[in-house]
């Protein structure tokens, strides 16, 4: 008796026509399909273009921009934006555009590093807990539960005096240490499902050792989810970083991040609004672009994920709200 699932929804990919495509087309075919799906999402495309521009602003513009972020213009204190100072100046005569670009460099690096570390930790812990089960699982999940109920802001803030004067990399590690848990859980539950999938069982009964199974079969199966989640984590890390730096618990001088730039500008903002709006605007644009890209990637890599049923015209859909530090 064939157990079949009559599909009401039409298959969302082309019914896998067995047969005649030449083998070469495949690898590039999948990539192309992903690109096509991604580019059909207008918000994702916008995000990508925006992010590229912001990267250029952070890393390329200082090369030719007239002012360095350490320079002070004694002829211009708290001047509104002009051709001379694109984003205006602050009370000491620093050029806000240069400062913002500099701050973005740090914020972007912190975000990307944190996203990477956090995804790595989540994958390792989640897959380990899910695959081995038993005590490994229970203790790891207990740690996850604990970390989830401790406000990460509070902990990092309390610890900030400890890394004052050391490198900002410590800060990255701390940020990552408090943002992998939800992803870790998702990885774990996916591992649990995959563990029961027959191709994993088949490998097990062939005699393939557990670590090899995890790296050969389990983690690659969730690669798309990890990529999407990693992207979203970058955004979350940038928000976390700027929030902590805003109170002086994050990046410390002489380093400059978007958070510190915004914090410096805020008190004078009621009278000199550009001091707040420009850096904050850049921050929001970065996070927004990343969120759009993450969303587009989800549509492109994981078209059957929740809610993304085959619908030809679509622009927006579920994003994860995971891992916001602030």
């Amino acid at each position: 008796m064939a157990v079949q699932t009559p599909s009401v929804q039409p298959p969302s990919q082309a019914p896998a026509a067995p047969g005649d495509q030449p083998a070469r087309r495949r690898a590039s075919g999948r990539l192309r399909l992903t690109a096509v799906r991604f580019s059909r999402n207008r918000m994702a495309l916008f995000g990508l273009v925006m992010l590229v521009l912001l990267f250029l602003m952070a890393y390329v513009s200082p090369l030719f921009y007239k002012w360095d972020y350490t320079e002070l213009d004694f002829t211009a204190f708290q001047k509104p934006p002009s051709g001379e100072h694109w984003f205006g100046t602050d009370q000491t005569g620093s050029d806000l555009f240069a400062l913002t670009a500099r701050g973005m460099q740090k914020s972007l690096v912190i975000g990307i590093l944190t996203g990477l570390i956090c995804t790595f930790v989540a994958a390792a812990v989640g897959a380990g807990a899910g695959y081995f089960g038993g005590w490994t699982d229970r203790s790891l999940m207990w740690v996850v539960d604990l970390l989830l109920v401790m406000p990460s802001f509070l902990i990092i803030a309390v610890l900030s005096p400890l890394f004052q004067g050391t490198t900002w990399l410590v800060f990255v590690v701390l940020l990552a240490a408090f943002s992998w848990m939800i992803t870790g859980r998702v990885v774990r539950s996916m591992t649990l499902t995959l563990k029961d999938r027959e191709f994993v069982k088949a490998a097990k009964y062939m005699g393939v050792p557990a670590p090899v199974i995890i790296f050969r079969h389990i983690l690659p199966s969730m690669a798309s989810m990890l990529i999407i989640d990693g992207t979203i984590q970058v955004g979350a890390a940038i928000i976390g970083e700027t929030s902590l730096s805003y109170f002086g618990f994050g990046v410390q001088s002489p380093d400059v991040s978007l958070g510190t730039v915004i914090a410096t500008g805020t008190p004078a903002a009621p009278s000199f609004p550009w001091l707040f709006y420009f850096p904050a605007g850049c921050l929001v644009l970065i996070c927004l672009s990343i969120a759009f890209i993450g969303d587009g990637l989800r549509d492109a890599l994981d078209p059957n994920s929740s809610g993304a049923k085959a619908r030809a015209p679509r622009t927006a859909k579920s994003t994860s709200t995971e891992g916001r530090t602030s």
Binding site: R197, E198, F199, K201, A202, Y205, M206, G207, H217, S221
Partner: peptide, 23 residues
């Protein structure tokens, strides 16, 4: 010995969709 035994004892699962790693 176990590994050797695995060689002589093989398995075919129910769902041909799930039994092969799609990647």
């Amino acid at each position: 010995e176990r590994k050797a035994l695995r060689r002589d004892l093989q398995v075919v699962f129910q769902d041909p969709m799930a039994a092969l790693d799609p990647r």
